[in-house]
Every structure is written in structure tokens, then in C-alpha cells.
Simulated assay, not measured.
Amino acid sequence: MVTPPDPGAASVWVLLGARHGDNQQLLAIADALGVPYRTVPLRFNVAAGLPPVLLGASRLSWGRKDPAALQPPWPRVVLAAGRKSVPAARWIRRQSGGRTRLVHINRPWAPLSWFDLIVTAPQYAVPERPNVLSHRMPFMPPPVLIDVPLPRALQAQAARLPRPWTLVMVGGDSRPFVLDDEAAVGLARLVNAQVRAQGGSAWVLGSPRTPATAMDVLARTLDVPVHVVRWGEGENPYAALRQRADRLVVTTDSASMLTEALLTGKPVVPFALPRQPDWRWRLATAWRAAAARRPGSMVARSFDALQDLGLLSSLRDLGLLHRALEAAGAFDGRGRVLDIARQEREATLARIRALIDRR
């Protein structure tokens, strides 16, 4: 983290919310900018469930432990993510007399015109606008080149497992995706086929969202040399195994987990989890698809207009992300995805630096 001697003099403020993935992406951007910044952890109340268009630039839905910390000099740029942080970002801009620029990550669930820059990805289906920068992957720093050792408790097991290694990164339920017993059987069969075709063995890593029952089914169905690591069992070998694996199999419920796998530069095989969409997901997805089929129609114009007003936002559809990555050749194992990630990082940083430098 780059911090100035006087935190109040930071040119960038990073609003941290309750979502770990959003916070990590914001901090990665702030670190990469190379300018002084400060973090502003936010606390939300029940009013945060209201749409940002109703809350405006108020403090009705959010606060922080030290209210006195929100004082001038105001930042040149605020980095934020998520719907709940929008009123806080707008409140800071209002205090600055409109001079603070707002950068929002992913989707704001608010009028797009409120923001100087929105950095998003295909799964959010944010419409094309001059202030929208759409990339195929979330912002993540380049892979760490420093060797990460395997936990001592796993070193003996690692010596017994034949090479090459297939690392299986298992997610879990994330609306509308579900990891049920049937999906666990399908994943195990895919891993069995991969190991038989490539030789060697597999490491299977669970995550905080992996259902225990699905992990049991997965372990029982695997019939190749394998070691299963459940979440919370000892020291996490995730980073070490990403470095050491020869190929990866990843469930498709997490954009960040998929991106971390792709940034290894090794062959990645995605495993699509089944969907159990609710009526809201079905309605929003059908409306978006109808608008895409007939761009000039009343359906398309109403869809775009409601998104611009912040009254409608497409629910996350990771299928759009997978198709965009596949079209870019991200899964061919040739390392092309590393160039894509580098170009997208540079484009994001250039746009934000331009906002910081703008007088």
C-alpha cells in the first residue's frame, strides 16, 4: 500500500465494503496506480438495501467508525465497488464541490452518468458508453514470481503423488449456480478423464462455499491418484499448488477464481456448474437477450434507458464471461491470456491516472 505521511493528503480514496472480492480488486488497482491513497472502511445499515437513486448523496445508509476522518483535503479520485458504496462516493464528491472523480468497479446499480469511469466485465452486461471500460477479466496483479512453499503437512503427500499434477479448484453455490451431488459426480468424472489422458494425479481444493456433501461425493467418485483438501483443514496450499500444478480444472461460479487460474499461464479446463435461476434472473436475462437480438427495437431502447437511469441492472451471467474468454483463446494454454490481462490492466490504470491528473 502506498500511503502519504498525512493520510488526508491522499489523492485516491478506496471505499471498502463487505465483499472481500470487491475489496481485493480495489486495493489491487490502488497499489498498481503508484500514488498515495487511503482506505475508508464503510459500515452499512438497513437503509443500504434501498436503491442508490433513492438515497442520493446522503449519509442515511452508511457510516464509519471515525466520522472525523471524512474531511478535507478531499481526494481527486474515489475508487468504489458495489451498490451500497454509491451514496458514500457521491457524498464525498458533493463535499469536494464536485471536483472528486468517481471510479466504480463491476456494476453500480445506479445511473451510469453519475460516474466518471465504470470498469466492468462481460458477466455484468453493462451497456457501452464513453465512461464504461469493459474488460474480459477482473483487475488482478501479475502472478507472484516468488516461490510459495507447500505446507509442511502436505510435503510427504506431494512426494507420493505422481506428476503431472492436475489442480482442481472447487467453488460452490453462487446464484444461479449450484454445486449439488449430481454436479459433483460430473466434476469427478471430468477429473478422472483428464488425469487418465494426461497421466499423473490430482489435487482437489475446496473453498468456503463448497458444500460438505458435494465434497464427499466428489471424493468418493474420484478413482485416480488424488489428494483432497477440504476448506479449513490445516494451512491453505492454494497459492503453492497454483505455482506447481501442470494444468487446472476450475468450476465456473467465480470470476476471480477463474482469473487466478488463467493467470498461471497453464492450460485451464472450466467446469460449468448447473443453474437454478430464480424469476428475477430469468426475467432480466430474457430482457437483455431480446434487446441484443433487436438493437433498435422498443425492447432494446427501454432496456438501455432503464439501465442508464439505474432502475435496472442485468443479473450476473458468468456464461457471458466464459464465452468472451473462450473467444479470446484464454483456455488454449498458450499464454495468450497473460498478454490480455496485461493490456487490460494498463488500460484501466491509464484511464484512472488521466482522471487523477485532470484539473
Rank of each mutant, 00 (worst) to 15 (best):
S61I: 08
Q123P: 05
D332F: 01
N23A: 09
R107F: 01
V170E: 11
G333A: 09
L150P: 03
G34M: 08
Q71N: 12
M1G: 13
A9C: 04
L311M: 13
R152W: 09
V103D: 04
Q95C: 08
A212W: 04
W13D: 07
T120H: 05
L248W: 06
N192C: 04
T285W: 15
R336V: 06
A354W: 06
A324T: 15
A240Y: 03
A18P: 02
F177C: 08
Q343E: 15
L55H: 08
G172W: 06
V126T: 09
V249G: 09
H104F: 14
N131K: 07
G206D: 11
M298N: 08
L102Y: 10
A80I: 00
F303L: 13
F331D: 02
Q157F: 01
L54M: 12
A158N: 05
A290S: 09
H135G: 15
G186M: 00
A324Y: 11
P73N: 00
D304C: 06
L306Q: 13
V299C: 07
A289L: 09
V228R: 10
L102E: 14
P127E: 00
S313H: 10
R220V: 03
R301S: 03
A188D: 06
D223M: 08
G56V: 09
R282M: 04
M215Y: 10
A354R: 13
D22Y: 10
A212D: 04
A212L: 12
L349Q: 04
V228K: 07
A30C: 13
R90S: 15
E233S: 06
S134H: 03
